[in-house]
Amino acid sequence: MPLAEIPLSAWRKRSQSFVFRGQPIRYWTAGQGEPLLLIHGFPTASWDWHYLWQPLAQRFRVIACDMLGFGDSAKPLNHTYSLLEQADLQQALLAHLQIEQPVHLLAHDYGDSVAQELLARHYEEKIEVASCVFLNGGLFPETHRPLLAQKLLLSPLGWMIGRAFTRDALVKSFRQIFGPDTRPSESEMDDFWSLVECNRGPRIMHKLITYIPERRVQRDRWVSAMQRGEVPLRVIDGEVDPISGAHMVERYRELIPDADTVLLPGIGHYPQIEAPVQVLKHYLEFRDHFVLPPRKVACS
Results as ranks from 00 to 15, higher is better:
residue 50 H to P: 01
residue 91 Q to R: 12
residue 65 C to K: 03
residue 121 R to D: 07
residue 106 L to E: 00
residue 129 V to G: 07
residue 49 W to N: 06
residue 64 A to C: 03
residue 105 L to Q: 02
residue 122 H to P: 08
residue 137 G to P: 00
residue 90 Q to L: 03
residue 65 C to E: 00
residue 60 F to H: 11
residue 139 L to H: 11
residue 68 L to V: 04
residue 52 L to K: 01
residue 140 F to Q: 11
residue 134 F to R: 06
residue 59 R to F: 11
residue 54 Q to G: 03
residue 91 Q to T: 06
residue 89 L to A: 01
residue 143 T to V: 07
residue 92 A to R: 10
residue 73 S to T: 09
residue 62 V to E: 07
residue 60 F to I: 07
residue 112 D to T: 15
residue 148 L to K: 15
residue 54 Q to K: 14
residue 119 L to W: 07
residue 82 S to R: 13
residue 90 Q to T: 05
residue 51 Y to N: 04
residue 61 R to Q: 15
residue 148 L to N: 15
residue 58 Q to M: 04
residue 48 D to R: 01
residue 110 Y to K: 11
residue 133 V to E: 02
residue 50 H to L: 06
residue 113 S to Y: 01
residue 138 G to K: 09
residue 65 C to Q: 06
residue 134 F to H: 15
residue 66 D to C: 02
residue 66 D to G: 01
residue 88 D to P: 01
residue 71 G to D: 12
residue 90 Q to C: 06
residue 70 F to T: 02
residue 85 E to K: 13
residue 96 H to F: 15
residue 54 Q to L: 08
residue 96 H to M: 11
residue 92 A to I: 01
residue 97 L to H: 14
residue 82 S to H: 06
residue 66 D to A: 03
residue 68 L to P: 09
residue 140 F to N: 11
residue 139 L to G: 10
residue 65 C to M: 08
residue 84 L to H: 10
residue 55 P to N: 14
residue 85 E to W: 03
residue 84 L to K: 13
residue 55 P to E: 10
residue 134 F to I: 09
residue 49 W to V: 09
residue 68 L to I: 12
residue 116 Q to H: 10
residue 128 E to G: 02
residue 84 L to R: 12
residue 120 A to Y: 15
residue 78 N to Q: 12
residue 147 L to W: 07
residue 94 L to E: 05
residue 93 L to I: 09
residue 90 Q to R: 08
residue 64 A to P: 03
residue 58 Q to V: 11
residue 113 S to M: 05
residue 95 A to D: 04
residue 112 D to A: 08
residue 142 E to K: 13
residue 88 D to C: 03
residue 114 V to M: 00
residue 135 L to P: 05
residue 92 A to E: 08
residue 128 E to P: 02
residue 57 A to I: 15
residue 83 L to Y: 01
residue 53 W to R: 10
residue 68 L to Q: 01
residue 149 A to V: 13
residue 80 T to A: 10
residue 88 D to E: 09
residue 83 L to N: 02
residue 143 T to Y: 02
residue 79 H to M: 07
residue 50 H to K: 09
residue 105 L to E: 02
residue 130 A to I: 04
residue 99 I to M: 05
residue 134 F to S: 06
residue 116 Q to W: 06
residue 76 P to K: 14
residue 80 T to F: 15
residue 76 P to Q: 12
residue 102 P to M: 00
residue 60 F to L: 03
residue 61 R to P: 15
residue 63 I to M: 09
residue 129 V to I: 13
residue 139 L to Y: 05
residue 72 D to P: 00
residue 97 L to E: 07
residue 114 V to W: 00
residue 66 D to S: 04
residue 145 R to C: 02
residue 93 L to F: 07
residue 80 T to L: 11
residue 95 A to Y: 08
residue 60 F to R: 08
residue 65 C to T: 03
residue 148 L to W: 13
residue 101 Q to G: 08
residue 67 M to D: 00
residue 57 A to C: 13
residue 49 W to P: 09
residue 49 W to D: 01
residue 127 I to P: 01
residue 108 H to T: 01
residue 60 F to Y: 08
residue 141 P to G: 05
